[in-house]
């Protein structure tokens, strides 16, 4: 296997494909859902009230911000760190910014490599906690499908391989290919899986905010 060739293809064509599918996929899904919502989701439009919608969204983004989160505080913290680092870290890595600079001639501010290391380790611990919880809590284990485990592993792989690659642990070329492959696969799957909650979260949470708050003056957190 020619790992250098694989790396080149994944980095050049791969990123284009992955990001296109990711963005277009989400866009198409949202447009489609918007289309069918006009007739079948009147309650969403009838009781719109963005004060309640935004409260409903924000509350659940804050760790321990809701009664539900406070019921399982460790889970709440792990979820928060997992998501926050997942969304932010890739943009702040100096290695990624070098690639960005080379390709498009601009880059974003980077954080130091040691901070990045720390955040990656925190991410991996959070992911491990989520995995452990899925297995350890009987009701969550019962509900979980193989797809839930797969997606959790897939979401963590770019971070694990990234850490290994940076520290040159293991076969570098294989690991960096795995790094690209897992990240790109993740982007491609995202719009078509439960991971689409990245965007749909905003709508489902607004809806329950309208439904409970705007209609009933009641909280949903």
């Amino acid at each position: 296997m020619n790992w250098d060739y694989a790396y080149d293809v994944l980095l050049s064509r791969g990123t284009w494909i992955a990001f296109s599918v990711f963005i277009l996929g989400l866009l198409v899904r949202c447009v489609f859902l918007f289309g069918i919502s006009l007739e079948r989701d009147r309650p969403f439009y009838n009781h719109m009230d963005w004060t309640w919608g935004i409260k409903s969204i924000i509350r659940w983004l804050i760790p321990l911000g809701t009664k539900g989160w406070r019921q399982q505080p460790l889970f709440s913290l792990a979820v928060f760190l997992f998501h926050a680092i997942f969304l932010v870290l890739p943009f702040l890595l100096s290695a990624h910014n070098v690639l960005l600079q080379n390709a498009w001639g601009f880059s974003l501010p980077s954080i130091s490599d040691s901070t990045a290391d720390l955040l990656t380790i925190v991410f991996i611990i959070s992911a491990a906690l989520l995995m452990w919880r899925r297995i350890a809590r009987p009701e969550v284990r019962f509900l979980s499908t193989w797809w839930d485990y797969t997606l959790l592993i897939l979401s963590s792989l770019p971070f694990i391989t990234g850490l290994l690659a940076y520290h040159q642990i293991g076969p570098y070329k294989v690991i960096i290919v795995l790094h690209l492959l897992s990240a790109e696969l993740l982007l491609i799957l995202l719009p078509f899986s439960k991971l689409a909650h990245m965007i749909l979260y905003l709508f489902t949470r607004s809806f329950i905010g309208f439904e409970m708050g705007a209609r009933r003056g009641a909280r949903c957190w």
Partner: peptide, 17 residues
């Protein structure tokens, strides 16, 4: 089968809360 039902059924992450 509107946007809400489709979203709900597809994004439930079986977190068990």
């Amino acid at each position: 089968n509107g946007a809400r039902i489709r979203s709900w059924l597809s994004i439930c992450s079986r977190c068990g809360l």
